[in-house]
Design a protein around this nucleic acid. Structure first.
Lengths: 339, 339
DNA sequence: AGTCATTTCGCAAACGTTTGAAATAGTATC
DNA sequence: GATACTATTTCAAACGTTTGCGAAATGACT
């Protein structure tokens, strides 16, 4: 069925010379007779010769491929991270091979092993939420394949990391709500066993504290999904009618809250101002458009790729580097009040 | 820096036997002494031996990798397609390598060439909008690498295709609006040089025709972006106050229209019912949630992968197959009126 | 003891490419 | 006409694995 790409051997046979001569001619080696060189190069172009990457890979132990493992590419954040990675990788002649863990530890282990045997030059990984055992990462480490963690940190393995300053982001979002006149702000918080859940909550509390805004017993609600917010907020708002600000741990939850607030005939932002976190595409779709914290997925991806490629190309074994990117407050209508 | 994965040669050296014996022992070849077999297998397990895919690839001319080229993975539709592909591919022991064209012809050509020299076993491609020359695809064809087109068809190349019935989808959406009492429906149409733009418009017109709903001079508006809809609709609605239904060529445009309608203090769906097309994630985010046509990205991906793998594994050279998937009407609040 | 079969293993080639070293041919020098 | 040098080309090994074929060793049977 499958034909075959033109090889150096084919060219050699046609021109009645040896493969090594062809190889050298193609890369302008000074030892080769200019006439031979021209013959070879012309024929190569004519036959559309392209070097077989697999053979080069086997020989040189580098595949020019980096493996990317993320939970799910359908999430806007991860697809922006991937785009950032691909951009930098392509610029430096690398390709990426993508595998999804679907937040499953087992799928993650499978993916790591499969990619390891494909002579991947390096890994960029966002761990699955369910990953508690890190042997598969340690295996990567011992074999000596470079690896960068993105967004979710794994302290048990020495590797480069690209994180985002969740605390500061939450702080900025909360301060922004306060600055817009919110007196009673609720934080819809993520699970408190995850670092991002904790950091964003702490940033929220710190901002309240610095502005001398009192914290109530209902200030923090564990609620991190669209539907949960849709259920929770009517109840919460009817009990606490003075709530005038909501900072949600992610955009989707913020939008759920927004819908609930509107359904109770309260105005966003005038009655209740709302901020999300991530700056995913949907924050632009919401009505009113959602104020949020840009988590810089594209930049994270770019940084991760640069760090990885630097390590791939480096000979010395410098210690692990952690980059923490700054978030950015994106002010849109859901929080902007005329003062 | 980089250590190295354990190879067959390593095992052979340790056990003072030849690589060929190790190879055979590992795959339970009957020629091998059970005792040797056990030694080899035990040591392999202990050293965590994993066969080097690259070497196998070079030898057997198959990489177990399929190349996927799409315009942009950040688009919900494409990421669902990819998820569908990955699922089927993984089930059959394949991995996918993803490249984005960013709707650029040149990037697409580059990607094709780069993946070709990586001994990809097959391609799944959604062409860039700007692609008008098909030599790079013809090259794939002549080399004999199987290829499946998804969503956007390319008639100049013989290859399998997975498409969706745009005409029928548009027909169903329009009929649904009519069934919900809409008398004056506007279609926000895509560019009429693209097949999907044409098909969706034709489906719209056919539905109107079958229901004896008259077509006005303003029934079709070329408008296929969120912002364009935001600008266009206030103008349109003030001129034509009787418009009571909108069928947009995609969800994003539909949501832009929805925002504009709401801003004019008209109610969705009671004053104006709206339907989009694609069923992307944002249709669930819109307020009210958007009725739309499910374009079945995940299923398209799965189909494409199955078709490709079938061809990869097949010896006979059967003719190209085109699969046209049915869309599905997803009814949500933006179009549902109490009759 | 010679023949034959059986069991177990190693050799060598192959996949496509690169590269140090060796070989060949040609030219110049003495 | 021998030596040395240069220019150009080829050889062979290597990357890790598979596999047809042959080799060696063992045992059984005549």
């Amino acid at each position: 069925m499958k034909g075959h790409q033109v090889t150096i051997k084919d060219i050699a046979k046609i021109l009645h010379i040896s493969p090594s001569t062809v190889s050298r001619a193609l890369k302008d080696h000074p030892d080769i007779n200019p006439k031979t060189k021209k013959n070879v190069q012309d024929l190569a172009k004519k036959l559309n010769y392209k070097p077989n990457q697999v053979a080069l890979n086997l020989l040189q132990k580098e595949s020019k491929i980096i493996g990317v493992i993320v939970p799910e590419i359908i999430h806007y954040f991860f697809s922006t991270v991937i785009s950032g990675i691909e951009k930098i990788a392509n610029e430096q002649g690398y390709h990426i091979i993508i595998a999804q863990s679907n937040e499953s530890y087992h799928k993650e282990v499978e993916n790591v092993q499969a990619l390891m045997s494909s002579n991947i030059d390096g890994f960029i990984i966002t761990m699955a939420k369910t990953t508690m055992n890190f042997d598969h990462f340690k295996n990567i480490e011992t074999v000596g394949v470079p690896m960068v963690f993105v967004d979710r940190s794994c302290d048990e393995v020495t590797a480069d990391k690209v994180l985002v300053d969740d605390f500061d982001g939450a702080y900025k979002a909360t301060k922004h709500l306060i600055d817009n006149g919110c007196k009673t702000i609720v934080h819809l918080a993520g699970p408190q066993n995850l670092e991002i859940g904790i950091q964003r909550k702490e940033g929220f509390l710190a901002a309240l504290n610095d502005a001398n805004v009192p914290v109530s017993d209902f200030s923090i609600q564990i609620c991190d999904s669209h539907d949960h917010a849709l259920r929770l907020l009517p109840e919460l708002l009817s009990k606490r009618n003075n709530i005038d600000g909501i900072f949600a741990v992610n955009d989707l939850t913020a939008i759920g809250a927004m819908k609930a607030v509107k359904a109770m005939n309260k105005k966003v932002p005038d009655d209740v101002a709302i901020s999300g976190f991530t700056n995913s595409f949907i924050s632009y779709i919401a009505d009113p458009e959602l104020t949020t914290i840009d988590q810089k997925g594209f930049e994270m991806g770019q940084h991760a790729a640069r760090m990885l490629l630097k390590r791939i190309k480096s000979d010395e074994n410098y210690g692990p580097v952690t980059t923490i990117l700054n978030t950015e407050l994106v002010v849109r209508k859901s929080s902007l009040r005329k003062k």
